[in-house]
Design a protein around this nucleic acid. Structure first.
Lengths: 373, 373
DNA sequence: GGCCAGAATGTGAGCGCTCACAGAAACAAA
DNA sequence: TTTGTTTCTGTGAGCGCTCACATTCTGGCC
């Protein structure tokens, strides 16, 4: 340690650059910020010095002086799962594209206090806005108060109060999965749910239920998993005991669907011959499972982009609540689903394009060609 | 916009707290930083006010004043892949556990300039240290210069110059995979490589090669993929044309192994009956593939922890280069590998419980029991 | 020349905090 | 009382930058 009057950073400041270029620090500042009222020759000279010394403006000082910031924060939970990690990666990309830096704080336990801590941390660092993705359903009404004047966006989350948000339409996605099975002629369809407290688990479950009800079908048996393949395997074993007449199953995510398929195959039930399975997420490997998994794809890149747009919109017009309409997931049809071959007693109108009910057996809906990437 | 003399942040400062508590700002600062020489009563009074107003110190100002920082940065590439995203998540966890904040900047293209940009960005934000994980092999000798006085750690990376680093022993992991197959009696073993420029791809490939050579075996055919299941599928199709006497294959990661297995099955080759497949990574679903995949597990949590330790060590003693010894991956034995059943000209000892070598051909190494977690 | 608009440049002050040091208070020893 | 010693508290200054304003320099016009 030196005994100099003050420990100075060994980085150059705009004052050093100013001295080297023979101008005032303000002129350097003007050049750095591309402001007008600097003569071409002066600008040139300053820029040369900036390049020569490899000047790097101190964002900390700038942030303090301007009371503005070019850093956004993200709060997330359970980053080891597919959804959260996708949100993390895609938010960062979107932020980078807007020229913003990115801070990140993950939550390790499911408590409001932990959330508060993470938000506090980011706010203390003066981020210009916060994206929050918390996958579980929990009352977080004090979040607004913690954020204070710092804008926030709920990313595919619901905190129990009105706040700018961007969503993927989980329910609609799940309805698409269910409809796909119904279109294939399945009438008794089971469900493999995600963990109880997860918002997406609830919404996807609801989508399955609503679609069945809308088609006048009775929901099949339900079991719960924890998103892992293993839990999907176990839950399917349990489901099989109350399987009844089921010919298909909607599974809340791809990993569990994988476990489910294994459970079926292990007990001699073939997919899709004896049972159709549809997943959710379209993880990169889904097309190479055996059989390749029909599933629902979420556009996380769009989610990241829209979240950032929503945040930026707030910086300009704080009073508005730009609720962006939900992002629609899409069905990816592969080989884990097939038309129902089991005998059915009742025949049902599958309600596509107002086509009349069919006499007997199932009818197929106009299906877009199965897109496989 | 107000026309006040200066746009003041609407957050409270230590001056406001000082006024409320009837002390000087310095006393508040002392309380905030848990410094000595504050009487118990004063401390109490200040703390009460701090709590009441929910004071949140401005880290930006603190950072500027102290010339120190409690934020670490991470630079990464290809965060959509398993390894990089694991490194991202686990580094953040390790940082949080040390009470540090976390900034993150991803690289979108494989260029030294992009790396420079990312490092510059983090340095401009005055991070106290930088973790860099760049999976490809490329000369980045100027990185040291870009970082200047800011300590950095190469995380499972090699930049062509001496620098503090933490590694996972990719080569050793790959040797373990290969040895496992040899122990099962396989003598002609193919390899499915990762993309050319990736460091891990090269090291894993080398591990396979070295292990075979060490056992006096001739390397089988090799093909390249790009880490995706699809590329594994395609590459295996190509490999099958030059398959020869092969009875097993080492694949550079699990996704490609999945594609590979599908390719085999599709052409009527059964795994593990006709061919044994071993992967690398142990992604969460690997145990639920069909067949469950034997693979090599990397301890990313340890990698994150050690990386942060390495960084912290540098902050204390900059001149030293704490090279931490590589983290050893472990073999996870599942069902995609089995003893070689193809007719061999030479009969092979499958080496259970120290059975003696067999007359013809090969030698065996002393093998530790395969550990499964 | 005189005058002025407008461009170019420079000068204080302050963002919120900490550091170094200066005082003030409390208490004991001389 | 004086002096010293310890504990507590307060005061300037400065971290690197930007803002608002002041000043100087141009060139054009009457």
């Amino acid at each position: 340690m030196r005994s100099s009057p003050r420990k100075r950073s060994n980085n150059l400041t705009i004052n050093d650059v100013a001295a080297l270029a023979g101008v005032s620090y303000q002129t350097v500042s003007r050049v750095l910020n591309a402001m007008p009222h600097v003569s071409a020759t002066t600008r040139e000279r300053v820029q040369t010095v900036l390049r020569q010394v490899g000047f790097r403006p101190n964002m900390t000082a700038r942030q303090l002086a301007t009371q503005r910031s070019t850093t956004v924060g993200l709060v997330t939970f359970a980053t080891s799962f597919f959804g959260p990690s996708q949100i993390m990666v895609n938010s960062e990309h979107a932020a980078k594209e807007m020229g913003l830096s990115f801070m990140f704080s993950s939550i390790v336990e499911q408590s409001a206090q932990e959330v508060r801590r993470a938000v506090d941390e980011l706010c203390a660092h003066q981020v210009c806005g916060i994206l929050i993705h918390l996958p579980w359903v929990v009352d977080l009404r004090d979040l607004r108060e913690v954020c204070r004047n710092i804008p926030m966006v709920a990313v595919d989350s619901n905190f129990g109060f009105k706040c700018p948000s961007v969503f993927i339409d989980q329910e609609s996605g799940s309805r698409k999965a269910t409809r796909h099975l119904i279109d294939l002629g399945h009438r008794k369809i089971a469900y493999l749910r995600g963990p109880v407290f997860w918002r997406a688990a609830e919404l996807r479950y609801r989508g399955w239920w609503k679609e069945l009800k809308a088609k006048g079908l009775e929901p099949g048996p339900v079991e719960n998993g924890d998103w892992t393949a293993e839990s999907g395997f176990e839950a399917t074993k349990r489901l099989q005991k109350k399987w009844g007449e089921c010919t298909a199953i909607v599974v809340a995510n791809d990993q569990m669907a994988l476990g489910s398929i294994r459970a079926f195959e292990e007990s001699g039930v073939r997919v899709p011959k004896n049972v159709s399975v549809v997943g959710f997420d379209d993880i990169p490997e889904a097309g190479f499972y055996r059989p390749p998994l029909s599933t629902i794809k979420q556009d996380f890149a769009a989610l990241g982009r829209l979240s950032m747009q929503c945040l930026m919109a707030q910086l300009q017009s704080p009073p508005e609540y730009p609720r962006i309409r939900p992002i629609q997931p899409t069905l990816i049809e592969r080989k884990s689903t097939g038309s129902c071959s089991m005998p059915q007693d009742s025949l049902v109108n599958t309600e596509v394009d107002g086509a009349p009910p069919v006499s007997r057996g199932r009818r197929r809906s106009a299906q877009q060609p199965s897109s496989e990437e």
